[in-house]
Design a protein around this nucleic acid. Structure first.
Lengths: 193, 193
DNA sequence: CTAGGGTGTTACCGGTCTGTAACTTCTAGA
DNA sequence: TCTAGAAGTTACAGACCGGTAACACCCTAG
């Protein structure tokens, strides 16, 4: 029978969660499978019984990250049902919160930079997941009644992506500090057109 | 006497140039010192006679990159002497050209993402070089007579940084394709204030 | 011509990496 | 209680990494 406290998590899930955290903090090439399994309280053999390779583990981590992002979008809808403009502002607020709490950027973007081999299996996944997020933001802008929805969504995307990487290179006092002001200004400007 | 054709470049410079190219293409952790020296037509010992360590080589590469960027700024001033607004538009054009030619992003930003250790010696250098570039762009915006010069410069910075990383994750058909339109629109909008 | 510094060559050190084999131990379900 | 599969353990292979030692070479300045 299952432990009522649900404390005993399956090794596969422990590995996945630990790997996500460590990849996020130290980068993919900055952490080895041994370190992951040790931190997850298990061993290398168990990892390779559940994942074909380290690359496979990386891909599963990225999918899990996308899944978390999906949960965010559902939260926006739940908190502001039907009010697409409020959801857009919630997106900005969430992005800003992640910015100042986190310090490290987007896992997919970081992975894309680290895995420079153009035929790396993770790149396909990154591209399609990022594309899905873009479509989602475009849809939100459109449903919020904004005329040039694609342009606003793409501009917001680039601003956030830029803020994340700027945070890591210039630091928190750099341009990324103005993210909310820029994003809100853009939304206002696009709504006025 | 020196070779008149200047074909015989010093090993140090060959290593530096080769390392810049390979770090740019494959990332810092993605290329070893052996591969660099081989591609530079020399050997590991010579590398370590000129550079204290791989980290030291990385830092010198970043400084060289900053130097190339400085040359760009001088070109702007030379092509549009005194006309700061024209120089700002030239900056946008140059950024867009780099975007579609290159495929890989900014060396400093990529390095900052790859070298996640907060105490890595290269991070200090990255921060100060990036800060200098930011100051330069702010100064250009201010001299071009734009009121909220800092905000415009920071927005343009984030847009470019975002476009570079988006190019690597989503691809060339993604949001980065609209960079020029966004940047020019921003400049127009800020000038009208 | 000669001395010396820059360079090339080879071999090596200790460490880390991904991935596997063989075997033991644990645990859940019938 | 018995059994099958999941998980843990140990050891290892093979490759690559950054960095160093010792020595041979070449080329140029004097």
């Amino acid at each position: 029978m299952e432990d009522g406290t649900a404390e005993r998590i399956r090794p596969r899930d422990r590995i996945l969660e630990t790997a996500r955290d460590m990849f996020h903090k130290h980068g993919i090439k900055g952490v080895g499978v041994d370190a992951i399994t040790e931190a997850a309280g298990t061993n290398k053999m168990t990892l390779y019984r559940h994942f074909e390779s380290k690359d496979d583990l990386v891909i599963e981590c990225l999918r899990a990250t996308a899944c978390s992002a999906n949960a965010m979008w559902q939260k926006f809808e739940a908190e502001h049902p039907g009010d697409k403009l409020a959801q857009l502002h919630a997106w900005v607020r969430m992005a800003a919160d992640c910015l100042m709490m986190d310090g490290r950027g987007c896992d997919m973007a970081n992975a894309a930079i680290e895995l420079s081999e153009t035929d790396h299996p993770a790149r396909r996944v990154i591209k399609e997941l990022k594309q899905a997020q873009r479509d989602r933001l475009v849809g939100l802008c459109r449903d919020a009644g904004i005329g040039q929805a694609e342009l606003l969504a793409d501009t917001l995307s680039l601003l956030l992506e830029g803020a994340r990487v700027s945070l890591q290179s210039v630091g928190a006092e750099g341009p990324s500090a103005q993210f909310v002001r820029m994003a809100e200004g853009l939304i206002t400007s696009f709504r006025a057109r």
